[in-house]
Every structure is written in structure tokens, then in C-alpha cells.
């Protein structure tokens, strides 16, 4: 008996042609083939997808929640990156 838990995989599904693969959840599987097969059964029983990505969870690197301010705050005061910052005459209609 190996007593070893199968690794965790993160599952990403493309709902239809033209859309991104989107994270839908995770599951356990012994290897990549089983991960894809299990993902099919667990996450696409109702035509939720046409393509599956699986990534072993240990390969995902995430930013630290405590770095949230340092990373994302700087974008907060850069309103000039948004189209509404620029005041243009009404008669210009859509630009």
C-alpha cells in the first residue's frame, strides 16, 4: 500500500470556441491523463466545455495577498488611462 494521496490538479475549461479557458475548480488524479478524464466527468457533464486544461496545483505560483496594495494600488490613481478622462465636445459623438 502506497498510502500516497494523488496530487491535486487545477482545471480550466474553454466553454466554447472563441472564449478563454477559465478556472473551474480542482480534483485529484494520479497522472495527467486521468486528470483530464476526471475533469471531463466532474466539470463538463452538461456541455460546459469543449476543451480542458489541467495543471498540477504545485506548478501554480500566486501573488501574496499581503502584496495586494503594492502591486495593484499604483493603477488606482492613473485615471488618464481611461477614455473618460478626456473631455471632448458633445458634437464629436462617438469616439
Amino acid at each position: 500500500m502506497s498510502n500516497k494521496e494523488w496530487p491535486i490538479w487545477e482545471v480550466f475549461i474553454r466553454a466554447k470556441q472563441g472564449l478563454n479557458h477559465k478556472h473551474v475548480g480542482s480534483l485529484h488524479a494520479a497522472d495527467v491523463q486521468m486528470a483530464i478524464e476526471n475533469a471531463r466527468d466532474v466539470y463538463t457533464r452538461r456541455m460546459e466545455g469543449i476543451s480542458i486544461w489541467v495543471v498540477e496545483s504545485k506548478h501554480i505560483h500566486a501573488s501574496e495577498p499581503s502584496d495586494q496594495e503594492a502591486l495593484f494600488e499604483p493603477a488606482n490613481d492613473k485615471i488618464y488611462r481611461h477614455p473618460t478622462f478626456y473631455i471632448l465636445p458633445e458634437e464629436l459623438n462617438h469616439m
Partner: peptide, 16 residues
């Protein structure tokens, strides 16, 4: 189901 889990693990290791 233990033998199935063990077999799948062994197979995955061998393939790796």
C-alpha cells in the same frame, strides 16, 4: 478500491 489507487499511482510513477 485500494488496489486501484495503488495501481494508478504505480502506473503514473512508471510513466514519469
Amino acid at each position: 478500491g485500494e488496489w486501484v489507487r495503488d495501481a494508478a499511482t504505480a502506473y503514473a510513477e512508471k510513466r514519469a
